[in-house]
Design a protein around this nucleic acid. Structure first.
Ligand SMILES: [Zn+2]
Ligand SMILES: [Zn+2]
Ligand SMILES: [Zn+2]
Ligand SMILES: [Zn+2]
Lengths: 136, 136
DNA sequence: ATTGCATTTGCAAATTTTTGCATTATTTTT
DNA sequence: AAAAATAATGCAAAAATTTGCAAATGCAAT
């Protein structure tokens, strides 16, 4: 794997955005400022390489698009509420022991570094178990 | 949410395939046999409903497409090797305690029922840590 | 510097997935 | 049974993502 200027630019863009979750096309748009001739497929492929290098995470967070984020220390993960869309961030300390157990049990080295778990937040649980009365 | 014949047909297709992981378009192709006029978007939307009802799981397993599977008991999850593509199935008992801890800690009700974790299988770990000598 | 090789890139086409909207089907209310 | 309300479907268009291939680039060895 040789050095790719696009990869470096992507890492820079992600860092500049405060390491938020961006879609490939959002990254593409921001990249066009410095690399006017860049193509979307180049961004997708560079992101794929960054991912396999563990520098970037890829996630489906329930929006209709795949989101990318720079991987930093400490690792973090997310709980996404399917009711209201809220995204909670959870520390890796809540996940590390589970990952370690999986690795030991299956002699498998995990690369997943940004877990997304879907469910209902407390507020949405209440709402779904107590549907609003007809006359609300 | 009312009864949809397409949803029932999808569950039937998935069951018929021995509950393997199928893409939306694979399901679409099989559905055309009984529902000749069906449209792809109908399949996508029916799958979305089945998912939110917890009857079907949606997963990105590293192929370029999203895969769907009927949710059965007991639940299962997968480890996908990014080296050789191998897919290991793991029992929910390995995951349940972790999920329970998350639910308790964050008062969050998890809906995720088909976890996909990426990494390297034992064979691929050996290979990547010992790159083939130049004269192999 | 020059050459040779492997990787990356741009571009176009193909695939996959999402979305908007009018129509049809199902359920609920009169 | 009719009407009204709600949800699902088909179709077409848009958007997102992947893939094939030739040209350009980066690296390493002359
Ligand atoms: Zn994140
Ligand atoms: Zn919520
Ligand atoms: Zn499965
Ligand atoms: Zn492997």
């Amino acid at each position: 794997m040789r050095q790719s200027s696009v990869q470096l630019a992507i890492l820079d863009v992600l860092a500049g955005e405060g390491d938020s979750h961006l879609s490939a096309l959002e990254i593409y748009e921001r990249l066009k400022a410095r690399l006017p001739a860049i193509a979307p497929s180049t961004v997708y492929r560079a992101l794929e390489r960054l991912t396999q290098q563990g520098l970037v995470s890829v996630s489906d967070m329930g929006k209709g698009v795949t989101l990318y984020e720079r991987v930093g220390q400490p690792l973090h993960h997310h709980l996404v509420c399917t009711g209201c869309g809220q995204v909670l961030t959870i520390d890796h300390s809540q996940v590390g022991p589970f990952f370690a157990a999986i690795e030991n049990t299956y002699a498998f080295r995990l690369q997943t570094n940004h877990l997304i778990l879907f469910g209902l937040c407390r507020a949405c649980q209440a709402q779904s178990s107590t549907p609003l009365p007809p006359e609300a």
